[in-house]
């Protein structure tokens, strides 16, 4: 495992920890899109079906279980926890996220590495992950006050994606036969979706003012 991949996984892990910290300690999910969280729960469930068929490493298995468990529990907290769910910005979080799923499924049926159930699900999870952040970005833009934890959560997620792109570049040049167009294209699309957010985040950081996205 190279340094970019490890750093990518760690920023992903930190992003989840930041979100859990907000939910568990402050008992708030204000500014967090349930739609995005539901999409992530579906992304990890469909991608990690290979937990039952392929063993890669202990690290791999543990991380998969963490991402599965945390994404499902975050959705549970936002929907059912009696305190947390009250802070959910339901009226602002109106992105019709299920509309993203059908095109991703059709694309996965058409473009996959092999036409098997696991491979189609795997491709579906990559396409869906690429667009899963959209409801969150839309909610950020609508929420006038973005708190620090929410800003850091999205920043860490974006950093995780950018580090994975570096990881692919590194692997392409150091490993033989390492070519994965589906992963690369959907991963690059996903990373580009964060570009706008990154821009405003660093502007606010540089000017030492509170993060606000233009309407």
């Amino acid at each position: 495992m190279n340094i970019f991949r490890l750093a990518g996984d760690m920023t992903h892990l930190f992003s989840v920890l930041v979100l859990l910290l907000k939910i568990h300690t402050i008992k708030s999910c204000a500014g967090i899109s349930l739609k995005t969280q539901e999409l992530y729960a579906i992304v990890f469930t469909t991608r990690y079906l290979d937990l039952f068929t392929t063993y890669i490493s202990l690290y791999n298995t543990i991380m998969k279980l963490i991402f599965l468990g945390s994404s499902i529990s975050i959705v549970w907290y936002m929907r059912h926890h009696k305190v947390v769910r009250r802070s959910y910005d339901k009226d602002q979080d109106t992105f019709r996220h299920y509309l993203l799923m059908l095109p991703c499924l059709l694309l996965a049926l058409l473009i996959n590495e092999k036409f098997t159930f696991l491979e189609v699900m795997w491709a579906f999870s990559l396409y869906l992950e690429a667009v899963a952040i959209l409801p969150q970005l839309v909610l950020l833009q609508r929420t006038r006050n973005i708190d620090n934890l929410t800003g850091q959560y999205v920043l860490l997620l974006g950093a995780y994606r950018a580090l994975y792109v570096l990881n692919w570049i590194y692997r392409y040049f150091t490993e033989e036969n390492y070519v994965h167009w589906i992963t690369w294209v959907s991963g690059i699309v996903q990373t580009l979706l964060y570009a706008d957010f990154f821009y405003y985040y660093f502007q606010s950081w540089k000017n030492n003012v509170k993060l606000q996205l233009p309407a």
Binding site: T54, I56, N60, M63, F67, W122, N177, H180
Partner: peptide
């Protein structure tokens, strides 16, 4: 493991 390369990623 050339076929599964990439599937070792999360």
């Amino acid at each position: 493991t050339k076929d599964s390369a990439g599937k070792d990623e999360l």
